[in-house]
Nucleic acid binder design. Structure first.
Lengths: 165, 165
DNA sequence: GCTGATAATCAGTATAACTGATTATATTGT
DNA sequence: ACAATATAATCAGTTATACTGATTATCAGC
């Protein structure tokens, strides 16, 4: 309650919104900032909701990835999620301790692990996902269905467009 | 070149796109993820572009804030930017060392600092902003002007909608 | 003036990203 | 087949950030 002066105030107060003209140059300095803050908000709430499962949003991301790409080596999951190789070690350690993910040796490349959801992981994932969706929906509550779809489409285009490779 | 398998592939490959139906529930589990990755991409590139000025995107954010709210106390800047009070100390230390920002005692509240851009800070900011805009524009290159405007509008609505107060 | 709140700071802890090295295994070139 | 090089995972150590709790100075209300 002490704090009704948010970044949105900054932006609003400063006539960066609405942007009537077709020169979004004025608002570009704030774009990165705005995306970062939106991300921060959502990630924080997802993290909170995942806490009761003993994991973070990042662990959830790994599980989500494995649900679709079973048997992927650790490094590949990291590349897809843009998580550092050494950070992946810790994440998978955590997930293994919770018995949500298994490390098996890849028979075709015995340096690598083939990561899979464990039995428990497969069982839990729908429930975990349901929670994540709940809070994400809540985070997006101020948006119309149509806006959510647009946002998704635009972000996807953005992420696709900026490949570092 | 080793890595053409990005998160976008995940999403595309999995028919999460295009989302023809009016049930974005299927894609909601990926929304937070997608925003986070978009943010990561932009923040990283902005950080890189700021490096030649000896600052990070966070320092830039503080300067941008001060350019609009001169004389704000440290804690207020932190609240607006959602940066921890103790982290602000370090950020302002850095900016002061670079002589971009000044801490003056607020005459009305001698506990607080009134933060201001220094002379040099005021001079530099347009140049710094120009660089930031350059790389942000590059990050958004895959989007049409119209999509950038939409994205901005939607994100602003989202951030406004999810006040933690 | 006393009490409780607040701005900034500092010390200490926890987490994450990153660097560089190591081990085991794979791949490539000859 | 063998040597050189590359790769997957790990570990140790460094750095950046967030957060907690305490301290100091100051403010505001009674």
């Amino acid at each position: 309650m002490s704090n009704d002066s948010h970044l949105s105030d900054l932006l609003l107060a400063l006539d960066y919104f609405p942007m009537d003209e077709d020169t979004p140059d004025d608002l570009l300095p704030f774009m990165g900032f705005l995306i970062a803050k939106a991300a921060q908000t959502i990630v924080e709430t997802v993290d909170e909701s995942m806490a009761s499962f003993g994991i973070s949003s990042r662990h959830y991301g790994v599980m989500l990835m494995l649900s679709r790409h079973d048997g992927l080596p650790q490094v590949a999951v990291g590349e897809k999620l843009r998580i550092d190789r050494t950070t992946m070690v810790k994440l998978v350690d955590d997930l293994e301790k919770q018995d949500l993910v298994e490390r098996r040796r890849d028979p075709h490349d015995r340096r690598a692990y083939a990561l899979s959801l464990s039995e428990k992981g497969r069982e839990m994932l729908p429930e975990i996902s349901r929670r994540a969706v709940e809070v994400e929906r809540a985070s997006l509550a101020s948006l119309k269905q149509d806006e959510i779809r647009q946002l998704f489409r635009i972000l996807l285009k953005l992420v696709k467009g900026t490949r570092t490779t």
